[in-house]
Amino acid sequence: MKKVYPDADAALDGLLFDGMHIAAGGFGLCGIPELLIDALVKSGVKDLTIASNNCGVDGFGLGKLLDTKQIKKMQSSYVGENAEFMRQYLSGELELEFNPQGTLAERMRAGGAGIPGFYTKTGVGTVIADGKEVKQFNGEDYILEEGIFADLSIVKAWKADDTGNLIFRKTARNFNPPAAMCGKVCVAEVEEIVPRGSIDPDLIHLPGIYVHRVIQGEHEKRIEQRTTRKREEA
């Protein structure tokens, strides 16, 4: 079992094909797999369907794959900060499937847990329910949502060991664990690969069974909205 790869290009080697379905971790620009996104750009793989809460910003994160027109369809809850996204969407070049944020997260988790569908109250009576089965439980309406089964998961964690056990840091965890779970193959990029045994087994956030390939690298970790308070206010 060798899960550690030298870089993002090597880690994606043999996994990519046109028209594939990718699940990506991250919320906004927080906890996004920057290095693997760059490698996807380099690979030229196209007609991608990507399940990701957001689609980066212009020129960064998944926004890079928009600039190169490699994305065919996004499954997202919020795509606000991206002019190129809007341009491609309004011109019909890009498909968009809006998912309520919790529904998207649960669709990934469900896919990873072998659950093809689940019922939720979220979106009942809204456009999200259009065309979906409605079922009553205890007199209340619920809609059927389907699990996501992706060809590939790309995620970002803080640390990994060489068996793929992952720990995340603060709110950079977000969609990464559910995204990691729902792919046939999961590639994780981390800030540091640490020796086996150096992470307390009780503190592992995602067990290595979900993670097939790991790379270590430098991350830009761009901040989208820098908000601060003055020291005098303390």
Partner: peptide, 12 residues
């Protein structure tokens, strides 16, 4: 919000 200079990109 954090004090200026103490922003953490992993904490939003």
């Amino acid at each position: 919000f954090p004090f200026e200079g103490e922003e953490d990109p992993d904490l939003i």
